[in-house]
Amino acid sequence: MWKNILIGCALLWVHSATAAGPDAAEIIRRAMDHYRGQSSYAQMTMIIHRPDWERRMRMRAWTEGDKQTLVRVIEPKKDAGSGTLTVDGNMWTYTPSINRVIKVPSSMMSQNWMGSDFSNKDISKDTALIDQYDHTLLEQRERDGHRVYVIQCVPHEDAPVVWGREVLQIRDDWVLLRQEFWDQDNVLVKTLRALEVGQLSGRAVATVLRMGREDAPGEWTEVRTTQVDFDLDLPANLFTLSSLRNPRQ
C-alpha cells in the first residue's frame, strides 16, 4: 500500500515538475533519433564477457527510420558474413556456413542475440519504448555540466514487455546514459550503462555501452562504437532478405 502512495506522491511531484520541464516522451524520442538519426551506419565491436571466457566480434550496422536495421559480422572469420535483419518487428538471420536465411520465430524472440546479453527482442523492438510505455519524468539532475533527465517508463497493460518498469537516464544532449530494467517486484534485473561518451561525426555518442545482469556481475556484453555516420543516403534495397544474404556493401 505504502508503495502505491509513494508512487502517487512521486507522480504528483513529477506532474508539477513537468509542467515547466520538457515532456518525458519527447526526451526519449529525441534520444532515439539522436543515436540512430534518420539513417545511420556504424562500426562496432561487441565483447561478450563471462568469468571464464571472452569473445569479441566486429560488426557493421545500418539503420533507417525506426523500423529497419541490418547488422553484419565482419570478424572473427568464423562468423564473418552472418547477419541479422529486422524490419518492422520481424527478424531474420543469415548464417553463411549453412547458407540459409532463417526467420526468427516468435518462440526465440526472448532468447539472446548471438550469445550476448541482449535478447532478440532488445535488438528488434527499439521503438516499443516510445509506443508501448507510459513515461514520467522523475527527476532532473546536474552532472558534469550536463542536465540529466531520469525518466520512468511503465509498460502498458497489454504491452508485450515483461518488465515492471524501466528507468532511463538521458543527458540534455540526448545521450542515453543508463537504462535499468526492473521486475514487477521492484528488483533491478539488468542495466544498460554508457561507460564512455565521446564525439563521433560531430555528435555526442555513447561509445561504450555495457549490458549486465545484476545477479551475475561477472557477465556482461559491451558494445564499443568506433565509427558512426548519420543521415546517409542508404540504397533502397539494403534492408531486404537478398541483401542480408549477399552483402553488397
Binding site: G89, S106, S110, E157, P160
Partner: peptide, 21 residues
C-alpha cells in the same frame, strides 16, 4: 497479479505477442 508476455505467430508468420496479467 504479475504481467507476463505470450508470444506466438499469426497466420502470416509474423510475431504476435501481448502482455497479460
Amino acid at each position: 497479479g504479475k504481467r507476463v508476455v505470450i508470444m506466438s505467430q499469426d497466420p502470416h508468420n509474423n510475431v504476435a505477442d501481448r502482455g497479460a496479467r
